[in-house]
Structures are given as C-alpha cells and as structure tokens.
Amino acid sequence: MSEVVNVIVAFAVVVMIFRWVTSPGTDAAASSSGGPSPQAALGFRPKNVTQAMVDQVLAMFPDMPPDNVRFDLLRTGSVELTTNKILERGFLEPPPQSYYTLYPRQDVPRPAQSGARTTGAATRPPTNLIARYHLEKRVSDTTVPLDTDAGGKAAWEESAEKREASLKERKAQMILAARQRLLATQKAKEAS
C-alpha cells in the first residue's frame, strides 16, 4: 500500500514540475515586455495566428470585425473552428479591453465589395433596400400598380441566367410593393 502512495506522490510531483517548467512565468514576461503576459491579460494561452488566417476568415465573412476574428483565432487557433462558430451563431464575441493593450487596433483599408459605395478608405453598404438593389429609377415611376402578389410563384426557367434574372425581378417587385404599401399607410395616417 505504501508503494502505491509513493508512486502517486512521485507522479504528482513530476506533473507539477512539468507544469512549472512549461508555463511561462508571469514575472519574467511582465518584466521583459514591460506589460502583462498575453496569457495573463487574455485569460488563456493565445495560439499562433497569422495575418493569412485572419484574411481567410474575412474573405468568407467580410462583415465581421477584424479584431473579433483575430481574438477568436487566438482562442481557437483554427480557421475551421472560427468559421463554424460564425456559421452557427452568426457573430463572434468582441474582444475584452485587455486584448487592445496587447494588439492595438489597426486601421487597415478593406477591399471594396462590388455594389458597395465607398466613402474614403472605408466601405459602407447601402442604407436601404432601394439603394442596395439599385431601384432608384423604378421608385420615381409612379405608374407602377400596387401588386398584391409581388414576388409570388415563378415559372421554372431553362437556364441559370434566366432563373437569376427572374429572382432579381421578383425581389425588385417585392421591395417596390412594400415601399408602396408603406407610403399608402403613411398617407392614411397623415389624412386622419
């Protein structure tokens, strides 16, 4: 029985020595860089993250803030896990304030997306559906009747291009019909 206890104590001592040797000392890291260690500031040991990993995630999800992507990659160390998290949740948690002491914000101009308006270095998506789908010319046309079945069922087209054009037209009809209904309700409110 005493041999089992000795083996357990020896194993525990070896594990503690191994952890002590492999863990970065907070005093040494703090004194060498002048600030807290990344592990102490973030609350976890950050993984190695390259700019290529961040760019890969941002190429798939251009609306995600780069700092949120980098922070999640520091946590997971995997592009696949980060993209799965975005797909499952639809967002990534923002990094804590301590993240910005270690990784200051960088104002990197992001590439402009097709169809987006640019103002300066930053790209901003259109603020409404009319601008997003380029329907400004059709809005001014007041002769378009109010369609109660806008965007309804469409016939199956033979080619992919025709199906895409049909879908775009149905979207445009739905947006214009919704705008007409909104204007009609606003006029009714003003009249009463």
Score class of each variant (00 low, 15 high):
residue 2 S to L: 11
residue 4 V to T: 13
residue 6 N to M: 15
residue 6 N to I: 13
residue 6 N to E: 12
residue 7 V to M: 15
residue 8 I to P: 07
residue 10 A to M: 14
residue 11 F to H: 13
residue 12 A to G: 13
residue 12 A to D: 08
residue 14 V to Y: 09
residue 14 V to T: 14
residue 19 R to A: 11
residue 20 W to Y: 14
residue 23 S to C: 08
residue 24 P to D: 12
residue 26 T to V: 15
residue 31 S to G: 05
residue 32 S to T: 07
residue 33 S to M: 04
residue 33 S to I: 00
residue 34 G to H: 10
residue 35 G to T: 10
residue 36 P to V: 09
residue 39 Q to K: 12
residue 40 A to Y: 06
residue 40 A to P: 03
residue 41 A to I: 02
residue 45 R to Q: 12
residue 45 R to D: 08
residue 47 K to N: 12
residue 48 N to C: 11
residue 49 V to M: 04
residue 50 T to V: 01
residue 50 T to N: 06
residue 54 V to P: 01
residue 55 D to S: 09
residue 57 V to Y: 13
residue 59 A to E: 09
residue 61 F to V: 02
residue 62 P to D: 02
residue 63 D to P: 00
residue 65 P to A: 05
residue 66 P to T: 02
residue 69 V to K: 05
residue 69 V to P: 04
residue 70 R to A: 07
residue 70 R to G: 01
residue 70 R to S: 04
residue 71 F to Q: 05
residue 73 L to C: 10
residue 73 L to F: 06
residue 75 R to T: 05
residue 75 R to A: 06
residue 77 G to D: 03
residue 77 G to E: 05
residue 77 G to H: 09
residue 79 V to C: 07
residue 79 V to P: 03
residue 81 L to S: 12
residue 81 L to A: 11
residue 81 L to M: 03
residue 82 T to V: 05
residue 82 T to P: 10
residue 88 E to Y: 09
residue 88 E to V: 12
residue 89 R to E: 11
residue 90 G to R: 04
residue 94 P to Y: 11
residue 96 P to K: 07
residue 98 S to K: 14
residue 99 Y to V: 01
residue 101 T to H: 12
residue 102 L to I: 03
residue 103 Y to A: 01
residue 105 R to Y: 04
residue 108 V to N: 06
residue 108 V to C: 01
residue 108 V to Y: 10
residue 109 P to A: 04
residue 110 R to Q: 10
residue 121 A to V: 13
residue 122 A to C: 03
residue 122 A to G: 01
residue 124 R to Q: 09
residue 124 R to K: 13
residue 127 T to W: 03
residue 128 N to A: 04
residue 132 R to C: 03
residue 136 E to P: 08
residue 139 V to P: 07
residue 139 V to E: 04
residue 139 V to R: 01
residue 140 S to T: 15
residue 140 S to E: 12
residue 142 T to P: 05
residue 142 T to H: 09
residue 143 T to N: 14
residue 145 P to Y: 06
residue 154 A to P: 02
residue 154 A to L: 11
residue 157 E to T: 13
residue 159 S to H: 06
residue 161 E to C: 04
residue 163 R to E: 13
residue 164 E to I: 11
residue 164 E to W: 02
residue 164 E to Q: 14
residue 170 R to C: 06
residue 171 K to C: 07
residue 174 M to F: 07
residue 175 I to Q: 01
residue 175 I to N: 08
residue 177 A to S: 08
residue 177 A to Y: 07
residue 178 A to W: 10
residue 183 L to P: 00
residue 183 L to Q: 04
residue 184 A to D: 09
residue 184 A to G: 08
residue 186 Q to K: 02
residue 187 K to W: 01
residue 187 K to F: 00
residue 189 K to R: 10
residue 189 K to A: 07
residue 190 E to N: 03
residue 191 A to R: 12
